[in-house]
């Protein structure tokens, strides 16, 4: 065990991510147990940021596989470069040994690496982010499970390719589809919740350099109250950061003194028409009144 929770917390903080105790433990365990980490939580709580911070804190590359419906092996693992293969066949037409040509066009030169293959063939461990795994279909999930347990892939034309290094795998899910028990069992699990007021203020100070401590705390407090309102789309941490940047950028320093500014910039956090009409001037004033 080379790293401790404190050192991870420091490294994460310098990468701009303020992690809580549970997440630090989970990240530490990723290393100790060599298991992937599954992050669940509402949209915008910073799941993807965890992987970025992890890569930054270890000074390694982040390889990202964005999942979508219909994602398959050729998008995720590898694909042959057919255009080049066809050209090569044409160029060598009528000359040389056809067997040699065949082995030539099915060599690494003509192989296009996709994220999964790139991650396990990297000479030093990288962070592999499999984003929104719930958007891919069940078939892909089963395939993913196989890759994640063996860390080797077989390409019919080339044979089995073992991992050069074991990547640190982070999976994120929004819950658009129920994931299989097998995948859940295999992974470490962390539920990323909206940060509490103190932590959100800390995040603001890390991400919005020009903000002062009291104002960050006010914004964080207001956000936590806003999230308790009945909203169609609850604003995430990214929205808070945007909003704080907007407020400070427009010269705001105190919520109660800059009410007009607060109301005008609510577009940073409320992203649907219903929400916008629900949080009226009166509601905004009430929320500010509680905070300031």
């Amino acid at each position: 065990m080379t790293r401790t929770k404190d050192s991870i917390a420091k490294a994460f903080a310098s990468a701009g991510y303020i992690a809580d105790e549970g997440l630090l433990t989970a990240v530490l365990l990723m290393e100790v147990l060599a298991r992937p980490l599954l992050l669940e939580g509402e949209a915008g709580v910073g799941k993807t940021e965890v992987a970025k911070a992890l890569a930054a804190s270890e000074g390694t590359d982040l390889i990202r596989l964005q999942c979508f419906e219909g994602l398959d092996r050729s998008d995720a693992l590898y694909e042959w470069n057919y255009q080049r293969q066809l050209l090569a066949i044409k160029a060598h037409e009528g000359q040389g040994d056809p067997d040699a040509l065949e082995s030539a066009i099915f060599s690494e030169k003509y192989l296009l690496q996709r994220p999964l293959l790139a991650a396990i063939r990297s000479p030093r461990p990288v962070v592999l982010l499999i984003d929104e795994v719930d958007r891919a279909d069940e078939e892909f999930e089963a395939f993913l499970l196989e890759v994640l347990s063996d860390y080797q892939v077989s390409i019919p034309e080339l044979g089995t390719i073992p991992a050069a290094s074991i990547p640190r795998v982070v999976l994120t899910s929004n819950g658009t589809r129920e994931l299989s028990d097998a995948l859940r069992r295999r992974c470490l699990y962390h539920y990323v919740d909206y940060p509490d007021v103190g932590r959100e203020a800390e995040i603001l100070r890390a991400r919005v350099p020009s903000i002062d401590t009291a104002f960050a705390l006010q914004i964080a407090e207001l956000m936590s109250r806003l999230r308790k309102e009945d909203l169609a789309k609850v604003p995430g941490v990214a929205e808070t950061i945007d909003w704080a940047a907007a407020l400070t950028g427009l010269g705001g320093t105190h919520l109660a003194r800059d009410r007009e500014l607060v109301f005008d910039t609510l577009a940073c956090v409320l992203k649907t028409r219903e929400d916008r009409s629900r949080i009226t001037r009166e509601v905004t004033d009430r929320l500010i009144g509680k905070v300031a």
Partner: peptide
Amino acid sequence: RLVTGAAGQRAATLRPALKALFCGR
């Protein structure tokens, strides 16, 4: 392995470790 390791010495460190390992949803 966790219980015998450093994390197993105190409930405060064992709990988050086992939580991350055992929870799935």
